[in-house]
Amino acid sequence: MLRVRVVAAVALGCLGLVSGCSGPADKPARDAKAGASTHSAPTPSATASRAPAPPDHKPVSYKPGSPDRTVRTARGYLVNTCVPKDLRSKATTLTTSDGVHLSALVMGDGPDGVLLDHEQGYNICSFIDIGRQLAERGYHVVIPEYRDHGASEHVAVNEHIDRDARAGLAELRRVGAKRVFLAGASCGGTTAAVAGVDTPLRVVGLLMMSSPARCSLGVDVDAVAAVRKLKVPTLLVVSPGDMEGAVEKQVREVYAASAAPKKELVIDKSGYHGTDMIKRAGASGAALQDRVIAFITDSYDAAR
């Protein structure tokens, strides 16, 4: 019954697979598993020569999308209550090109960045376990929460989340990242790919989980056009049970269009959508999370 409800939720939020995907607004985060790092830490000399971090953004007052799921941190930033207390000090406020304020987590440091874009209808905690592990392995991680979601600013029309992805990339660049791995789920993956095409950062890889070929978000966000230009290691993941196969059809279209010399298509049997393939699928979800992290670290190793 659980899988049936998940598919039904996806169908409501992905009508025609052009308006993003929705699911439960808050989901409990599974404890991140400890793992050996394959990403080398900066040498002391590199750390000593690194430019000092720029000052953080000033806290902003605004109406969040979900006031009942929002708290203000000790530093004055709004953050989703799903964020563990030990990570709330990593919260900040980003401002998009059209002036919308986003709650975001900025974890880790260094020149190797990772952008993690959640599904529409989900929240900043969708990728929080992966983000924590990557930060511990020496990556600079930014997880923006989309407009009108959680602790990000309420807007009358939930469109233009491509601008939210671009704000996340701009933050990575501002805090010193030189390269970026793009990752997202559902329309979060679609927008991450599109935003990555014109970022000044060097893109080293792409992850798209249950991401449709196109999303209509105020403008048409076209992943097919994007992956023809992003010739970087690419991992696509989808469940054949997601929306009775409709999502798999879209993902296969993206896979066929990809110009990446190294590309992988993982057919996950769980029946779940997006990060639920990791967070709600038990042992297979844990294995998929390990595979995702390994793909990111391998992509960075290949880019050296």
Rank of each mutant, 00 (worst) to 15 (best):
K249A: 14
L12G: 05
A51E: 08
D117Q: 14
H118S: 11
G16E: 13
R228E: 12
P44G: 06
G16T: 13
A51D: 10
L17Q: 13
C14L: 11
L15V: 14
P44D: 12
G241K: 05
D222M: 02
A225D: 09
R304P: 00
V254P: 01
C187R: 08
G196S: 11
A151P: 09
K58Y: 07
A156D: 14
S45D: 06
A91D: 08
K249G: 00
F127V: 06
L169Q: 07
P54D: 14
S210Q: 03
L235Q: 13
N123Q: 12
V251D: 04
R72A: 07
Y272I: 00
T95K: 15
G282P: 02
P42S: 08
G274F: 01
A213Q: 09
K249E: 04
Y255P: 02
T73G: 11
K262Y: 11
A34K: 12
G99S: 13
R174M: 07
H118T: 02
N123W: 00
T199A: 15
G168Q: 13
V221W: 00
S299I: 00
L236Y: 09
A8S: 06
V227F: 11
G138C: 10
V266P: 00
K63N: 11
Y139S: 01
V106D: 10
V114M: 04
T96H: 03
A195M: 11
S258P: 11
R166H: 09
A41S: 10
T96F: 02
D117T: 14
A170E: 15
E119V: 10
A25R: 13
D242V: 01
K178P: 02
T92F: 02
V180M: 05
S126R: 06
D31N: 01
S89K: 14
V247R: 09
A46K: 14
G168V: 06
A91M: 08
P24I: 06
R75K: 15
V204W: 00
T297L: 03
Q250S: 12
P67H: 10
K58P: 11
S37P: 09
I267P: 01
A193R: 06
S66Y: 05
P261R: 11
G113R: 06
P200H: 08
D268H: 15
K229W: 00
A165H: 03
H39C: 09
D298I: 00
A156E: 13
A294W: 00
F181M: 05
V227T: 13
N80Y: 02
S186I: 11
V232L: 07
P144F: 03
R3P: 05
E145P: 08
L217K: 01
H118V: 01
